[in-house]
Structure formats: C-alpha cells, structure tokens
Design a protein around this nucleic acid. Structure first.
Length: 199
DNA sequence: GACCAGGCACATC
DNA sequence: GATGTGCATGGT
C-alpha cells in the first residue's frame, strides 16, 4: 500500500498536544472540518493546555463549532485538559479513564503523540478487514487489535514506530478511496492484488 | 434532501 | 452482553 500511495506522514499536527486535540475533534467527523476548528484555536492563540483549559465550555464550543458535536466535544476536551493540566503525570496509559476518550481516540494519541507501538482500529480498518474476509463485522475492538498487532509483530519493520503510524494511515486512505460501497466484499478493489491473502 | 465522516457515553433490554 | 440513540457540522 505504501508503494502504491506513498508515505502518508501522519498524524497531521505540529505538536503532540495538537495531535491529542485533533484526536478528540475528529471523532466521527471528517478531518476537513477538524482543520477548521484547529485553525480557529490557532487564530485565537489558545492551542496550548493552560490557555485552552482557561476557556469556558461555551467559549471552547464556539471555537470548535466547525468540527460538529461542539457541545459534546467541548466537554470532552475539558475533561481531558483537566486531567492533563491538574493531575497527568505523563502517564498516557491512563487516557482511557478520562471521560470522552474511548479506545480509538486513546490509541491515536498513544501512537502519534506518545510514540507507543499501537494499532488503531477505526471504521475503515474494521470495514476493510471484514470485506476481505479476515474478521467478523462485529468483532470487538480489542480482539481486532490483537489480530492486527500479532500479524504486524512478525514483521521486521515493526520495530520502527513509523511503520505502525503509516500502516494505519494507509488503511484509512484505502478505505476512503476504494471501500465506500455497500457491497459485502470489495470484489473490485484495485488494492486486492496488493493486499495479503490472509493476516 | 439524504448520506457520510479518522466515536463515545448512556439507556434499555 | 447486545443493541439503539443522541450528539451536529460541512461536503458530496
């Protein structure tokens, strides 16, 4: 896939903090809308933990409005910022205990901001694996993650963090470009010849 | 106007 | 444990 598409250079974000904010804002939301919200935060010069946490929830919601679910995400951002500002000791593994940080959001932060070797299971990954017959459509997050990580760990490239980061990015752009159909299997997927016959 | 997009928490059964 | 629902903007 990388030979086909080229390196994706994920995650888009200038700092680890921007990566974390983007991970929350992009929940069930197109990245183009997240970019507008982040641009608003940058224009207001509040894209750093202390300044962002100093905003009221309505102020924050107004700035992130283009990302959708702005009231929900303002609450989620503040719950993340409260822990980050007041009690986070750099222990990223505690992310999942924070309200509004589910497994995918936490894994995105761990992989792209924290430098941990994690496989992010998102909707595209789930769809691609299901349609190629490698998993059930209703497979749980952790089960699918174990399947992917055990397959990746057999590869010598897996020692490099960059390999894990770009692996996820490649799956997402593949999902965007070729797997939007409602067909049960991607019979016409141009990537079929590029993908392994099994995980 | 309908559908979709780099989810999550909560209620209900 | 499984399923359904609310949250909300912007592009196609």
């Amino acid at each position: 896939m990388r030979a086909h598409f080229g390196h994706q250079h994920w995650w888009p974000g200038e700092t680890p903090f921007e990566v974390c904010v983007g991970a929350i804002l992009t929940q069930n939301t197109a990245w183009s809308n997240v970019e507008r919200a982040i641009a608003n935060l940058k224009a207001a010069r509040v894209l750093e933990p202390g300044k962002l946490f100093a905003l009221s929830e309505p102020q924050l919601a107004a700035l992130i409005r283009p990302a959708g679910y702005f009231n929900v995400k303002a609450r989620r951002l503040r719950s993340f910022l409260r822990v980050l500002v007041e009690e986070f000791g750099g222990e990223l593994e505690r992310l999942l205990a924070i309200h509004g940080i589910g497994p995918e959001t936490a894994d995105s932060m761990l992989l792209y901001a924290g430098g941990h070797h994690r496989f992010v299971i998102d909707a595209y990954t789930r769809r691609i694996f299901h349609r190629h017959g490698w998993s059930r459509g209703d497979a749980g997050y952790e089960k699918l993650q174990r399947l992917c990580e055990s397959a990746l760990n057999h590869k010598p490239q897996a020692a490099r963090l960059d390999y894990w980061q770009d692996y996820h990015a490649q799956l997402v752009i593949t999902g965007k470009d070729f797997c939007r159909t409602r067909q049960p299997r991607c019979a016409e997927c141009p990537l079929k010849s590029l993908l392994p016959s099994k995980v």
